[in-house]
Design a protein around this nucleic acid. Structure first.
Lengths: 260, 260
DNA sequence: CCAAAAGTGTTGGAATTACACCCATGG
DNA sequence: CCATGGGTGTAATTCCAACACTTTTGG
């Protein structure tokens, strides 16, 4: 939202266009510098960091809403996106804690009434997205004051129950990794074996044998070796690979069994 | 709900006590006659079958609500219960299709207004429950006209998008079966090897070797052999087993890796 | 020429599959 | 005694984990 009028309109009348009390929050994961990162935002009128999120329009499908929210924040579309859990139990999700935040957001322009559609218990459907870190360009506006990528291993205390949401997202991703290949969304089109190797180690939180690891991906036909190397300074140049789109898609749909 | 007054009060004023537009629907699975069964209900004023469900009270945790709904329907508490997905996209989940149902439910007593809290897009959080078929005693009332156990392999066309919900529940259970033992909730306290064997085959939809299958459960220490047999007519009496509660609980919490 | 990282094959052991015969029971 | 289903062990194979040396590169 770009203008104050837009914000005020949203706060006062957004309830006519959106499902009340129901939001989508996104755990947007990227990968950079051999670290798994998550995109956090800081809202105006709030002094903590949280997951980017938004409301669902009355006739909008959840997946479309999640994609829209993602596109609004990151500028990229068409990414790996998946619902993982719905949250609504935390005591933070109730009226009192948020009336003040809301008043701060709109400042002195208007007074938030008791029955404002944004107050009351908030339910949030969690989606996680895996994105290519390089392609993300975050927009700030009158709602989002600041944003940043945070190392997932060193998160601060987040707003509401967003730490729980991140934990649950990671747990889901780890389980999923054994049944679906999901590396393609986090990596650029071309990557080296050490890169994808460290990615999997980071996601699973354990070390994987350097020689055995790629064998399993090759056995599933997921990788194509390219006739190109990446130059990485005074060391041997690692070969570049890409995902085999056909087999990758098939694996996504039919599932795989990876033991690592 | 037992009285007409209660029903009318709920339809007119339930919105003051419940989260609007948000329901919990439960896929309640049981196991009987070597078939996986699901508990379906038929509501007054509706001529199709669907999953049992209910609304969430304003200050009620989701899990508590799901447990309450389950207890109201099946009479049992303390069962394996887990959220699996949130649904809200189906075109069936909109106003037009349901205003008539609602009017039929309350009959001529009152007229449903356009802005009734029960109308509008309905979101449903799906929970699945695994129950011991024998212990379930279903209650009918003024809302639930009829109920029944249906073989999961031969479901009729259900209300709204409930077929999708069942599919998603089963998919989740199958995945979970590889990482957590969930047989205990579906079986009576004591059971035979052939019983749990067929259960797993039914859940996974594939045949499992009769000799290798129990070996894997024994290897995990999940089963205790009892000094008792079940008499099954003119055949050799199969031995009875029970789950080893300690190891079962540990496996639930820490996860296992089953390859079958 | 050196330091640092990439690449690559083999082997021993563990795990998994496949498979068939005997036993117990009640009618 | 017979029909039916339950119980059990082993051998062959496959799969997996462990491991170290050589190559490439830029400075």
């Amino acid at each position: 939202m770009k203008t104050t009028d837009e914000v005020i309109d949203f706060v006062l009348y957004g309830g006519q266009r959106h499902l009340p009390h129901l939001t989508i929050d996104c755990a947007i994961l990227g990968y950079h510098d051999q670290q798994l990162k998550i995109l956090l935002v800081k809202l105006h009128g709030s002094d903590g960091w949280g997951l980017p999120g938004g409301f669902i329009r009355k006739d909008e499908r959840f997946g479309d809403a999640a994609n829209r929210i993602l596109a609004e924040r990151t500028g990229i579309t068409d990414l790996f996106l998946q619902q993982f859990y719905t949250f609504g139990d935390s005591p933070y999700r109730h009226r009192e804690q948020r009336a003040e935040d809301l008043q701060q957001l709109v400042g002195d322009w208007i007074t938030i009434r008791e029955d404002n559609w944004l107050l009351g218990r908030q339910i949030s459907i969690g989606y996680y997205a895996l994105v290519d870190y390089e392609r993300v360009i975050v927009q700030t506006d009158l709602i989002v004051e600041d944003y940043g990528w945070w190392d997932i291993a060193a998160l601060p205390e987040l707003l509401y129950d967003h730490n729980d949401m991140v934990d649950k997202a990671l747990e889901t991703i780890r389980l999923q990794l054994y049944h679906q290949p999901i590396g393609a969304s986090l990596l650029p089109d071309q990557f080296t074996l050490p890169e994808i190797h460290v990615l999997y180690e980071t996601l699973l939180g354990k070390t994987l044998d350097r020689r055995n690891f790629p064998r399993k991906l090759f056995a599933l036909g997921l990788l194509n070796k390219l006739d190109e190397q990446r130059s990485i300074g005074p060391h041997r140049s690692p070969n570049l690979y890409e995902f085999n789109r056909t087999n990758y898609q098939k694996a996504l749909e039919e599932g795989i069994v990876l033991v690592m």
